[in-house]
Design a protein around this nucleic acid. Structure first.
Lengths: 111, 111
DNA sequence: TTGATATATTCCCATATTGGTATATAATAA
DNA sequence: TTATTATATACCAATATGGGAATATATCAA
C-alpha cells in the first residue's frame, strides 16, 4: 500500500491544486465540462479526470443536459475538513497567544 | 511531473491520515519522537519521515533536548487551508439554504 | 445515415509516495 | 573508549499519481 486512494478521501481530493481550482470555479454556479476546460486552460481529458475524482468523493454533483454535463458544487462534502481544522483555529487567533493569555490573566486578577 | 511535491504544500501534507494523526497528538503539547512512536504504534522511521514532511511545510517546530527531539505544533501553518475552506462554509450552514435566503429577502423588502 | 460535438475512458510513461529494513549520526552512559 | 539510546536518512519494492494522446460513447444536426 502506498497511500490512501485519492478517490476515497476528501482530504486527498483537495490536495491537488487543479481540483481545488475546479471547486473554486464552481462556487459561482454550475458549469459544463467545456466551460471548465476553457477557464482552466487544461486539456479536456485532464478536466474530466479531475471531475471524476471530485464526483467520487461527493464534492461535485452532476446534471445532464443533452450533450453537456453540468457540474455543481456540493460544499457539504468539505465539512469534515472544516471540522478537523477548526480544532486548530485558535492557534492563529492572536487572542490565544501566550502573551495575550498572560495579560488576560492579569486583568482577571485586577477584577 | 506527476503531482505537486507533498513537501512543498500544506494541502498535501495533511492529505495523509498518519500526518494528521501526528498533528492531533501534538495539540496537547510537544512530544518527542519516541513518545509519538508509542502513541501511534508505527515504526520509528515512519514517524520520523512524517515529521520530516510536516516540518518542511512548517506545520511543526522542533526543540532539541539532549538525545530527544521535541516536536510541537505550529497551527498557524494551517491557516491557508482554513481560509480556503471558509469560502465554502456557508454551503453547509442551514441559514444559507435557499429557503432561508428567500425569507431573508422578504424581510429586507419589509424594511 | 453521416458527421460533428461533448464528455469519459483507456493506455502508456515518468515520477511520487509509502512501507519496511538497514544504516548513519548524535548524544549520553558506563 | 565503548555501548546504548534517540532520531534521521538511505535504499528498495509496490503502488498511486498526473500528463498526454488516442479512442470510446453519447447526443445532436444535417
Amino acid at each position: 500500500m502506498a497511500r490512501a486512494a485519492t478517490t476515497t478521501d476528501v482530504f486527498n481530493a483537495i490536495a491537488e491544486p487543479g481540483r481545488r481550482q475546479i471547486l473554486d470555479l464552481l462556487v459561482n454556479g454550475e458549469l459544463s465540462v467545456n466551460e471548465l476546460v476553457e477557464q482552466l486552460g487544461l486539456a479536456q481529458p485532464q478536466v474530466s479526470k479531475r471531475l471524476h475524482v471530485l464526483r467520487e468523493v461527493g464534492l461535485v454533483l452532476v446534471r445532464d443536459d443533452g450533450r453537456q454535463r453540468y457540474y455543481r458544487l456540493n460544499g457539504r462534502a468539505l465539512k469534515p475538513i472544516h471540522d478537523w481544522i477548526r480544532r486548530y483555529e485558535q492557534m492563529w487567533n492572536e487572542r490565544f497567544d501566550a502573551l495575550d493569555e498572560l495579560l488576560e490573566e492579569l486583568n482577571h486578577e485586577e477584577d
